[in-house]
Design a protein around this nucleic acid. Structure first.
Lengths: 358, 358
DNA sequence: AGCGCTCGCGTAAAGGTTTTCAGAGCCGGA
DNA sequence: TCCGGCTCTGAAAACCTTTACGCGAGCGCT
């Protein structure tokens, strides 16, 4: 009926017992032949494999995990999968996991702490051995407590917790941190604007308490200071992230002042919104205003103009997270890894318009 | 030491036995109280729940799945997670799955049939009850055979297979199809160009054998024909998908001819590449050439100019896939569902330049 | 020839949960 | 008073695989 050979059992899954029976061995031998955990004579092995193929045998991962105590599964938790940056990180995790035959499950929280907790709980039930929490977050007491709870809970069942782009947990908390060096990236790109001659640079997209953004702001301020500019030169607009926020904040800013020649957007999506707002206001980039972004999302080179930005190799971040977590079994707990970034120069930065530079 | 209360067991996971013991009931009663599958007096129930909370009990999903025969898990398979369209579909699946307490795992194939097969096999082992294959594909014999194999294999263990944006399988194959009506979408957007006055419209991004693209081409041709234009008016460039392909093909085309006033890109990423190529050639959009895309990816409104395109609600596609698969248990096998699309008008279409319209 | 070692393989236990079956206690009706 | 039926609960089986243990046979060495 199914057209798949006369050996198909019509109901229920075929188990290792049936394979063993058909191969004329015990389930123990069949298991050894199939899993390769224990040597088995070639002839026997071939007979078992043959039987398994004939019956279209599929091992039951649950039974296997039950006795084996755990399973090869990694979980990656992001705010939303559709954000280009998070998608790249998730892809990195998935790729690195797949390379080692691990399964990768993704959870989206939408930024909701409740959903994050539920998902971590679910991962505990599922026996995930690696949970990777991705994305900046504002660091308050509730957050610290939550992470401490995750870390201990996962640790007690032998699983690892990795924080990507999140603040380091309190000392003693068994979690790893892998992130980009936001401060040097921001420093570099601010320096790029400074050496193009800009002196009045506004930072668009601050989010006080969010350690990733705070670090970028710090790098921005440091670069300004190193150029001998007084601290009050710094102008940080705390509008948060995302295209809509960038658009709104830029529009608003233009109403208040035009006393700036460059914009450092905290994120490429913010830059996208800002670029549109500038265009709507009849300003040309980089003729009237120069703009830089952060993260180098895949479409940044198609912005108008192509965006000068800081490349944060997001996929590599994901890969590094699983690699590091799986490498140093015990030693690494509490370790803090920083990944390098580099600036990519495109067409959105030019000299400041004459007469407006300081 | 852990600071989490004096009831923490230091080694190993706490099982339902320990919960039962502490609550003074049997494991059967504990299970009933915890899972809610069977009524239990409020007092007993409270005692069990209390014990579980005190011990930080976490159910073992494997044991549960082992006895329950399967588990609430959906798998979504895409070419790559970083493609905006696929990411949105995956997000839809994840969201709909999460709404029902299901787990969602994603697999990326990179377009490799081998990896697709391995992943489906893995899902069989894991006991996924729903596998969703997303994304157009060129339909050859090997493909049809592969899908037939997946469908039968999954069906025999009671799992469902959903094809999103893929060709319908041969009749009798137990798989559902959910996709957008590419033909009417393409028809509509072509009509939009026609009523703006364009007569020489080139379709950029054909991929013969890919049913999704073929359908768009068909809609494009049909709209042309309905306007009384001779068939040879149609000009399809088979460059495939992606930003790079669009850029290359557009650059190439401009070298050969400028006898067109509008471009219908088979996909927004192709449009992104084409827009850049047009800008590089010094052509203005929509002044010299009008451009439309397909899919309405999130950044389409930030293209230069904002892109008129066809909105294919990708997240809804993902949600619909799981909803439909889970709704009609038996009846739906082989069903073919079409989701509507609509055109979204932005600034990339204008009247053809005077003297060049037919 | 005899001893001991290795190899191959089968038996059985273990892993944690759900569920079936049945027993116990209780209430109400006859 | 007795019995039917209902509610609550516990013992035990079942789900499928892996692995520790042990046994028998074969082989090489003395």
């Amino acid at each position: 009926m199914r057209g798949m050979g006369n050996d198909m059992v019509s109901k229920g899954r075929v188990t290792i017992r049936e394979v063993a029976e058909r191969a004329g061995v015990s389930t123990a031998t069949a298991s050894r032949a199939l899993s390769g955990n224990h040597p088995v004579p070639a002839a026997t092995r071939a007979r078992v494999l043959r039987a398994a193929r004939d019956l279209d045998y599929v091992a039951n991962a649950h039974a296997r995990a039950l006795v084996g105590g755990g399973r090869k599964m990694a979980a990656v938790v992001v705010r939303q999968v559709t954000s280009p940056f998070y998608a790249q990180v998730a892809e990195g995790v998935e790729a690195e996991a797949a390379d080692r035959g691990w399964l990768c499950v993704v959870g989206a929280t939408g930024g909701d702490a409740q959903r994050e907790m539920e998902f971590v709980q679910l991962m505990r039930e599922e026996g995930a051995r690696l949970v990777i929490l991705v994305g900046g977050v504002v660091e308050d007491d509730a957050y610290r407590e939550r992470v401490a709870h995750y870390a201990h809970a996962l640790d007690s069942s032998g699983a690892r917790l990795v924080l990507c782009g999140r603040p380091a947990p309190d000392p003693g908390i068994p979690a790893l941190v892998v992130e980009f060096d936001n401060e040097v990236g921001a420093h570099a790109v601010t320096g790029h604007l400074l050496s193009a001659g800009h002196r009045r640079i506004v930072f668009l997209g601050g989010l006080p308490g969010n350690t990733a953004l705070d670090a970028r702001v710090a790098g921005y301020r440091a670069a300004l200071a190193e150029h001998g500019l007084p601290p009050e030169t710094a102008h940080v607009v705390d509008c948060g992230l995302g295209r809509a926020a960038g658009h709104r904040a830029m529009t608003e800013l233009l109403k208040q002042t035009r006393e700036f020649t460059a914009v450092f957007a905290g994120d490429d999506m913010v830059a996208a919104g800002a670029l549109r707002a500038l265009a709507d206001a009849g300003l040309s980039v980089p003729g009237d205003v120069s703009v830089v972004g952060y993260n180098d999302i895949p479409l940044a080179e198609d912005f108008n103009p192509p965006l000068t930005t800081v490349r944060t190799p997001a996929e590599e971040l994901g890969r590094a997270a699983v690699r590091i977590a799986l490498r140093d079994p015990e030693h690494a707990a509490g370790a803090h890894h920083l990944l390098g970034t580099h600036i990519v120069v495109r067409d959105s930065v030019g000299p400041p318009p004459t007469g407006r530079a300081l």
